[in-house]
């Protein structure tokens, strides 16, 4: 992770160590707190629900976002990739096609979003923030037009092929399929970002874009691949989302956007150079999910949960960044 950036001048080691572990420590503290004060937090049922409903899909989207942010970009259109892949997948299943084709169709739709982003950013030289913002607006229209203004599509029992259903619901060797998909996705992004030449170029692109350009590395190629990969990964999340709830609800992907960005940046707090990493992002996702679940269990209503999460994230980051920079 850190090998692409030059070594930083020596700092007070104890402070540095403290600041890098602040997020991890905060996570442990929060888990312990809820384990003591929230009834049923540690029950198998709750943890399963936490992982399946709050963690998996957000984590997959956030993994895609991690790649993009590591490359120095940002993707505001991940929600569109989630939604379009979910929409095409459900429409194809509803039309009676087999699950394999529907999955391929959904992924293809998401990859199209990635290709559009790549063209806008690399060919037309639009800044990633604006380009993906534009795609977000266009994605809204695409969904409205294809669903008569935003009518959800629900699958009936008959339309949903039984074996496919079984795979999604039960998984392999007792591990639910969404969890397996998350593990595979995390490993794939880990290898791509932290253990390959591609990942080094991508990280370098984020840390020192000019150096990369002058080194003769093909910036547009790498940028394009990052955005297409992010869209494809979000597409996987969309298919998982719609196959767990057996429906497509327009604009439901938008809910993941800010959390995915938040989780990725919270994750940067664990690296000395404040760079995104797969481990950091997963920790960020877990932190957000545990806080939401725990606050719910100790009886806070949705409104106060929102405030609580904001304050907690604020405190965690304040401690982590505040300790870090005090001795610059």
């Amino acid at each position: 992770m850190t090998d692409t950036t030059p070594p930083t001048p020596s700092r007070n080691l104890s402070f540095e160590a403290l600041s890098n572990y602040a997020v991890i420590a905060a996570f442990v503290l929060i888990v312990v707190f809820f384990a003591i004060f929230a009834d049923g937090f540690l029950s198998g049922e709750n943890l399963m629900n936490l992982v399946l409903n709050k963690v998996v899909i957000l984590a997959i989207v956030a993994l895609g976002m991690t790649l993009v942010i590591a490359a120095g970009g940002i993707d505001l259109s991940v929600g569109v990739s989630v939604d379009l892949s979910s929409m095409i997948f459900i429409m194809m299943i509803a039309a009676g096609m087999s699950g394999v084709f529907a999955v391929a169709g959904g992924l293809a739709a998401a990859i199209c979003v990635g290709i559009v982003n790549a063209i806008l950013i690399n060919r037309l030289k639009i800044n990633p923030f604006l380009a993906t913002l534009g795609v977000l607006f266009i994605g809204e229209t695409v969904q409205r037009v294809s669903t008569q203004g935003g009518v959800p599509i629900y699958l009936t029992r008959g339309e949903y092929s039984a074996p496919f259903d079984a795979i999604v619901r039960t998984g392999l060797f007792g591990v639910p399929t969404p969890v397996i998909v998350l593990i595979v996705a995390a490993l794939a992004v880990y290898i791509a970002l932290h253990r390959s030449v591609f990942g080094r170029y991508v990280s370098a692109l984020g840390a020192a874009p000019d150096v990369v350009r002058y080194s003769g590395i093909r910036v547009p190629l790498h940028m394009s691949m990052v955005f297409i990969a992010c869209a494809a990964i979000s597409g996987v999340a969309g298919i998982l989302l719609s196959s767990t709830v057996r429906s497509y609800v327009p604009f439901s992907g938008d809910a993941f956007l800010l959390d995915a960005i938040g989780a990725t940046f919270i994750g940067t707090a664990i690296s000395a150079e404040r760079r995104p990493s797969v481990f950091g992002t997963l920790l960020g996702v877990l932190l957000l999910a545990v806080m939401r679940n725990g606050l719910l269990l100790i009886g806070w209503n949705f409104f106060w949960q929102q405030v609580g999460i904001g304050v907690l994230v604020f405190l965690v980051l304040g401690v982590s960044f505040g300790l870090r920079r005090r001795n610059d």
Binding site: L258, G262, V307, I309, F314
Partner: peptide, 12 residues
Amino acid sequence: LATLAVMNIAEG
């Protein structure tokens, strides 16, 4: 990130 957290607080 900071303003994202503040956004959550304000919305809540």
